[in-house]
């Protein structure tokens, strides 16, 4: 599977990670090469084989609905790049 420049730009938008032109070219070539090697999976007959997401056979892990202590707000905000009045601060989402 060869990725086009537009493919990589589209992915870049999907994962919200901008790229320089040099990165774009490098990733286009490298990811194409990797995907070509993954074509080997087409050989495998997976008819009627169910997918596995996690190894242990756990289902519906739930906890009791009771109040437990949590970290103080100040501890959580201590790593925030920008904060204001107890909130994380970001630039306007809508113009």
């Amino acid at each position: 599977m060869k990725l086009s420049r537009e493919d990589v730009l589209h992915i870049s938008t999907l994962c919200r990670m901008s790229m320089s032109n040099a990165e774009l070219e490098r990733f286009q070539e490298q990811i194409s090469n990797i995907l070509e090697n993954f074509e080997i999976l087409k050989e495998v007959d997976t008819t009627n084989v169910p997918p596995t997401a996690y190894p242990p056979p756990l289902e519906n892990v739930i906890r009791e609905d009771k109040v437990a202590p949590c970290l103080p707000q100040s501890d959580i905000l201590a790593n925030a790049p920008h904060q204001e009045e107890g909130y994380f601060r970001v630039k306007a989402v809508l113009d």
């Binding site: 999976l41 997976t46 169910p50």
Partner: peptide, 11 residues
């Protein structure tokens, strides 16, 4: 890709 890989995981 992803679903196929998860099936191969089962195998």
């Amino acid at each position: 890709y992803y679903l196929k890989a998860q099936k191969v995981r089962t195998l």
